[in-house]
């Protein structure tokens, strides 16, 4: 679980960066700029189901527009972000989240890269140690190296 905590720490430092802009219509925009900002952030994490690889914030599809409206209505009526996510998951399942929840079925997804990093690190260390055993060659002193390189360049010319 140390790995887990480390990972969460990294996540905390690098908050997720939303890159996409939107298809939001002027009429949809909320008066309260703070609520509107929350609406935009939520929308970027919610998948447009019809158009597949877009968030509802990016999509012109009519279902995406309806979902954007629902998100805003619920924000205005005081719902929390997680309540809005719960509302959508109840109807459409985890699929609607562009950021999959961390749970048993997504451990490989979330922690796989970290596992690969540590596996790769241990493998590299193992190989380095083994090479040392197999090739117990003393490193050259700087003087020897100089001699050697002059030897090589001599051969190259010759």
């Amino acid at each position: 679980m140390v790995e887990n905590r480390l990972f969460m720490l990294i996540l905390a430092i690098i908050v997720s960066i939303p890159l996409n802009a939107s298809a939001v219509e002027p009429s949809e925009i909320l008066q309260n700029p703070q609520l509107e900002l929350r609406a935009r952030n939520l929308s970027q994490n919610i998948r447009c189901l019809v158009c597949q690889n877009q968030s509802i914030d990016d999509s012109n599809a009519s279902l995406a527009r309806d979902l954007r409206k629902i998100v805003r209505e619920q924000l205005v009526s005081g719902a929390s972000d997680s309540e809005i996510y719960e509302f959508l998951i109840a109807r459409y399942g985890d699929f609607i989240l562009l950021r999959p929840p961390v749970k048993a079925t997504t451990y490989i997804l979330w922690y796989g890269p970290l596992f690969i990093f540590f596996a790769g690190l241990s493998l590299s260390v193992l190989f380095l140690i083994r090479r040392k055993r197999v090739l117990p060659e003393e490193p050259l002193s700087p003087k020897e190296q100089e001699e050697l390189s002059s030897l090589i360049s001599g051969k190259e010319e010759g």
């Binding site: 189901l49 279902l63 109807r91």
Partner: peptide, 13 residues
């Protein structure tokens, strides 16, 4: 009329 019932049912198309 406004498609809200469909969303309650999880309709996507």
């Amino acid at each position: 009329i406004d498609g809200r019932t469909a969303i309650d049912w999880g309709v996507y198309g």
